[in-house]
């Protein structure tokens, strides 16, 4: 029986080498391309008619638009409007990546720590630059919670700095670990179906239920990723 981790293996489809670095077009890259094409097609084709009374596709596009717009407005407020395209792209990219990973025989690029970490690092660096651009050196006051008595400073400032620096790690590991655990669990339990013969009905039912749960988690993790991005943007804009 194949290892439950086999599904995460990366195979080159078109070998590519750029200045001595291996940048082959792999199954991971293929699913990123599919995600991007689907996402762009979803929004562009859905809005093709731009009807006042939307059809099904247009309504779906507008619901996702409104969902992310409300998310941003609720956490950041109206100043967050200029970051909407980024948060929307991020949400749709992670959501479609997660959902595409639920199709059998597919590859889930969000289950790779390097991918989620790269996204989280971009968010972290971007938000930090945003904070300094907006507040200058005053941004450092973010590490001192308001109302802290002076003797507590040596204790609280390191805690705040560490919690700030661990943001990209927690953000990326949360998504990566959820995807990894879910897909591994599905594979392990699916393996029992063949092993148990007639009694394999039980793990089969379990796998069906678990697939539903995984689809929920796919959505939930994309939501969490987007809402944390919004919160970080809010912190950078408003400090506390």
């Amino acid at each position: 029986m194949a290892s439950p981790l086999q599904q995460f293996e990366i195979h080159p489809i078109i070998p590519l080498n750029l200045g001595g670095v291996d940048v082959s077009f792999t199954n991971s890259a293929l699913y990123m391309v599919i995600t991007v094409v689907l996402c762009a097609a979803f929004v562009i084709l859905g809005m093709r008619r731009g009807a006042v009374v939307p059809g099904r596709m247009q309504a779906a596009v507008e619901i996702s638009y409104e969902f992310v717009a409300n998310l941003l407005r609720d956490t950041v407020g109206n100043e967050g409007r200029s970051y909407f395209p980024f948060v929307f792209t991020l949400f749709m990219f992670v959501l479609l990546g997660n959902l595409l990973g639920m199709t059998p025989y597919s590859f889930t690029f969000t289950s790779h720590i390097i991918v989620t970490f790269a996204l989280a690092a971009v968010i972290f660096i971007g938000v930090t630059i945003l904070g300094f651009a907006k507040h200058g050196m005053h941004f450092f006051s973010f590490f001192v919670p308001p109302g802290t008595p002076l003797p507590m400073y040596p204790l609280l400032i390191p805690i705040e700095v560490i919690s700030y620096l661990s943001r990209p790690i927690s953000l990326s590991v949360r998504l990566f670990a959820n995807m990894l655990a879910g897909h591994t669990l599905l594979k392990v339990i699916a393996g029992f179906i063949a092993l148990l013969g007639a009694a394999g009905v039980l793990p089969f039912v379990f796998v069906v239920a678990l697939t539903g749960l995984e689809i929920l988690i796919a959505f939930l993790q994309a939501y969490v990723f987007a809402i944390l991005t919004c919160l970080y943007i809010n912190d950078a804009l408003h400090l506390h």
């Binding site: 080159p12 670095v21 291996d22 792999t26 890259a29 990123m32 391309v33 990219f93 790269a118």
Partner: peptide, 13 residues
Amino acid sequence: VFATQLFWLALTF
């Protein structure tokens, strides 16, 4: 596989 993933992530995202 880090380099190729980062490369294609940037190239798609």
